[in-house]
Design a protein around this nucleic acid. Structure first.
Lengths: 245, 245
DNA sequence: AAAAGTTTTTTGGCATGCCATAAGATATTT
DNA sequence: AAATATCTTATGGCATGCCAAAAAACTTTT
């Protein structure tokens, strides 16, 4: 009576998740994505990934050189961008229209992104005024899947003296979101690293108005768009003296 | 690392669909639901249904007497009602908040009903003001899964002279919804059957203000809550003369 | 009521999607 | 080249569906 599972089986949820994960990993470390990295990201075993990569390649979504890693084709990139667009539109929609707490929208979007129709996507985008940025500060691909990639780096990678705009935090950790929110930190805030403690210690960071000590996973998850300016003198850097914006 | 498919496998989409279908069929024809009826409803083969019913029984969602049909347990009924609540809340939400066309919401809800969280359900319900009726005129189970079943019958089953309120139409057929909508007919309208043509012919039905000729599948899909009043005289019934409300 | 036919249900074999484990293959580092 | 890290290749399992054939139950005929 009707085709079994999905009408278009080139697009299961698992496949979309793989494309998304490859895309994200690809834009961090450049070049091909390793099987292991992918496995870790998706919380499955490398063996499973390996099998799936064969399928993705057959479908024309990726190019996979054995033992060398995988990259997305144009087609695969389109799949990834569409899912990411869905994800971020949904996050914003849930937060704005339904007032869902900021730290909860990701989890919900993770499922919904695979399930909404193109029509619903359009309606949501229209309702929100075709936004380009989601509540975590991530850019939202346009309907035509254009994507303005802003090159960011983790807060943890900054040197003392470097500053920029805190654009987003990995959206997958509600704990972090809650924590940052409670500390009054939000995407869009300008920041500057005042001091780095040695031995992988925390950073002293000046946000608009307040100074905060941030380290560990948090510093690694927070993404910063560099502005390049150095505003600290050698002296202040050495003493750790604080400079207000 | 993690349980394979669904975190709570007592609740896959397929399982929810079975419960919903059994519930619906059970409230139409009373008593147990036959394997075949279920198979037809779900557009799968009886063989597949048979296998699945064993699993449902193991999970405590149904009681299945071989060759005698299946009924829902309390637990199964709860699953069905929850999914139905999701479905109808989503339909209403899409129609009201996102202005999705009336004839499209069902299809979208059919998928979303299985994936929204309890939290999202609450937010949607709150946004809509905890409604009790969905856009098709179907009642929405409460958060506590109380369900006010209104006994309805198909328009086709009415005799000339009988009247009532058109409460809903099977929501699964967008064509019908479009058609009715174009004809200016909507759930909530009062109606009265003026005349039945013999040989399974169409009915002449008076809606608020206008008279319509309705037959075939349409008359069978439209559900009416009887009011019991007979407003036509013998004479008008015979002549088919129209009486306005 | 027994026999025969029809319908409904179950059984058994098979396919697909996706993941796991274990063992072997290849790269990289030392 | 040996050790280590990384990747692939079986192989197996689970969920869900299909089809075809066997079995059970109802119906009709005799």
């Amino acid at each position: 009576m009707q085709t079994p599972q999905s009408p278009d089986m080139r697009r299961s949820q698992a496949i979309e998740d793989y494309c998304k994960a490859i895309f994200t990993l690809q834009s961090r470390g450049d070049g091909a994505v390793s099987t292991n990295a992918l496995a870790e990201r998706l919380s499955i075993t490398p063996g499973s990934v390996s099998a799936m990569l064969r399928k993705l390649a057959e479908l024309g979504l990726t190019e996979h050189v054995p033992y060398r890693g995988v990259t997305l084709t144009e087609q695969g990139r389109a799949v990834a961008l569409e899912v990411i667009r869905h994800h971020r539109l949904i996050e914003l929609f849930l937060a704005e229209t339904l007032e869902m707490p900021w730290d909860q929208v990701h989890q919900e979007a993770e499922v919904l992104e695979h399930v909404i129709s193109e029509d619903l996507e359009r309606l949501i985008a229209a309702k929100l005024g075709d936004p380009r940025i989601d509540p975590h500060g991530d850019p939202i691909p346009s309907a035509e899947l254009e994507f303005s990639e802003v090159s960011t780096q983790s807060l943890d990678s900054l040197e003392a003296g470097q500053g920029g705009v805190f654009v987003r935090v990995s959206d997958s950790d509600p704990e972090m979101l809650r924590y940052l929110s409670a500390r009054g930190i939000a995407p869009g805030d300008r920041l500057q690293v005042l001091e780095r403690q040695p031995f992988e210690g925390p950073l002293l960071v000046s946000f608009e108005g307040t100074d905060q000590t941030i380290g560990g996973q948090l510093a690694r998850a927070m993404r910063v768009e560099l502005t390049g300016e150095t505003r600290l003198t050698d002296e202040t850097r050495l003493t750790g003296e604080v400079r207000r914006a």
